[in-house]
Every structure is written in structure tokens, then in C-alpha cells.
Amino acid sequence: MIPAWLRAAATALQFLTRLPIPGGASADPTRFEADIARALALFPLAGALIGTLTAATLWLASQLWPLPLAVLLALALEARLTGALHEDAVADLCDGFGGGRTPEDVLRIMKDSRIGAFGLLGLAFALALRAGGLIALPDAATAAVALIVSGWAARLLMLAAMLAIPPMPGRAGLGGSVASQATPHRLALALLLSLPVPLLGLWWNTQAMLLALLASALFLAWFRRLVLRRLGGSTGDCFGFAAYAGLILTTLAFAAHR
């Protein structure tokens, strides 16, 4: 019998990565809800683990190549590690919001597997901002810390978005079923369990960490209004977009106070 906390950790990693982790969420709908509910509190920690693996790749690559090339190699490995989960959400949301006029149009475009001009530009700028922010940092050690902290912040922001933005009426997808398990208690528990990560950010660069938290809060307020106005509620892509915004905002905050 797998302990509940171990199943929750496996579920969080299965949801956020493509790692072959055994013992995750049950296929039974009732047990799945319980597993994912516990896993939500571990999302920021899982994000920090993803950031740590990416940071290790960057540091090792920086021993052989200049920082810009090391950054690109690390981000490529991260995309493989996560299955480009959040990047896909960025492209879908930019396509839908850029090309759709009504909520129905937006959803139809977002479901289309093809990428359009808005999605291509949105994803390109998102990747460029993140890579550029990491390259602008003074050394590989600072870039590694930024990757770890931004991985944490991204999944915390995603969890906060699940709480702040109600699901789109009449839609019951995987994103909605996961978001329905988000509660203020689980958000607080997620912050408590992962507290050493933001403390690392505060110790390394207090101004950058505070700026990242402020920028994330402002983004969430703006994004909530945008999603409610354009869609009337959230979808899974909204949460993925919020996560990638957290990666970008935290990276740019560290680049602003390098």
C-alpha cells in the first residue's frame, strides 16, 4: 500500500512532467480527486525540482560553453522534461485570444492543434523573454538560482490562478477537475511546504524576490479580469499560461536586480 503523501508526490510529478513516475493518481474518478487534491499542495515543490534539474543542466553546460548557449541547452532539456506543457498553453491562449471574437471562437481556436500567427509570436516572445532574462544575469550561479525560484513561483502562481479564476461555465475538462480541488488551505500548505525556496530567493537577492512576488500578484489581478472578460471562466490552458508567466516574471525580476 503506497502512503498517501508518496502517491501525492508521484501524482504532482506525473501531472507536471513526463518523467516515468510510478504510483501516482488512481484511474478511479473518486480516488483521482483525492490524489490530485493532495498533489496540489506539492505543485510548487515539484516546480522547484524541475527548476533544480534545469539549473543543474545549465551549470554543467556553462563549464563547457558560454552562458547564452548553456541557457538554451537548459531550456531545451526543461521543455523535454515537462513535455512543453506550459509552452503549449501559451501558444493556444495567444492564438485563441488573438484570433477569437466570442468565447466560442476563442475555445474553437484554442482546441485546434495547429499553431497560428498569434500563437507563434506569443510563444516566440515568451521564450525569448525568459532566455534573454537568464542570459542577462551575471553568472551561471545566479541563473541557476533564478531557475529554481522561478520554477517554484510558476506553479504557485498556477495554483493561485486556480483559486482566483472560476472555471468556464459548462466545461468539465481535466483542468477544471484539477482546479476544483484547489482551496485556500491547500495554497497555504503549498507555500508552507515549499518555504525554503522563496527564502533562498530572498537570501540571494531580496529586491529581485520581492519584485517577482509583486509582479506575480499584479499579473494575477490583470489576468483574472482578462479571462473573465474574454471567456467567462478559466480552462486548463489558462493555468498553463499563468505558470509560464510566473517563469518569465521571476526571471525578469532577477535580471532587473542583477
Rank of each mutant, 00 (worst) to 15 (best):
V106H: 03
D105P: 01
A61Y: 08
T17W: 03
F43T: 04
Q63V: 05
P20D: 00
M110E: 14
E87S: 06
D88V: 10
L19A: 03
A89P: 12
G119P: 07
R38S: 07
P66G: 06
L123R: 12
G119D: 11
R31C: 04
D92C: 13
T52V: 12
P103F: 02
V90Q: 08
L60R: 09
G96V: 11
E87P: 05
D105Y: 04
G23H: 00
I109F: 02
L93M: 14
T17E: 03
G116N: 13
T30P: 02
A124D: 06
T17I: 04
D28K: 00
R18N: 06
V90N: 10
A124P: 06
A27F: 03
L49P: 03
H86W: 14
F32P: 04
P20V: 01
L69Y: 05
L120W: 05
P22Q: 02
L45G: 15
G122D: 15
F32T: 06
P103C: 00
L127W: 15
L42Q: 05
S26W: 02
G83Q: 15
L16I: 00
G23A: 00
A41M: 07
G99V: 04
G83C: 14
D28N: 11
G96K: 07
A89S: 15
G23R: 00
L42P: 06
S26F: 01
V71E: 07
T54N: 09
A34I: 10
P103K: 00
L73F: 13
W65L: 15
L53R: 10
A27R: 12
L67N: 10
L107C: 11
P66S: 07
D35Y: 08
G24D: 01
G24I: 00
V106G: 03
D95G: 15
G96D: 05
L77R: 05
P22I: 01
P20H: 01
A76F: 09
R130V: 10
L73Y: 07
H86D: 14
A34N: 10
F97E: 06
P68C: 07
L121Y: 06
L127S: 11
C94H: 14
G100R: 09
A34D: 13
F118H: 15
A70E: 11
L129N: 08
G83R: 15
H86E: 13
E104M: 02
S113A: 02
A70L: 09
R38E: 13
R31N: 03
Q14M: 02
F118T: 05
S26T: 01
E33F: 08
R80Q: 11
T54L: 08
G116P: 09
D112E: 10
L75R: 08
R18H: 09
L19P: 01
M110G: 04
P103S: 00
W59S: 03
L19W: 02
A74E: 10
D112W: 05
G132V: 07
E104P: 01
I21Y: 01
F32Y: 13
D95E: 11
I36E: 12
I109A: 03
L64V: 06
G98W: 07
L73E: 11
L16Y: 01
S113E: 04
L58S: 08
R38G: 11
A48C: 12
L40S: 14
C94D: 08
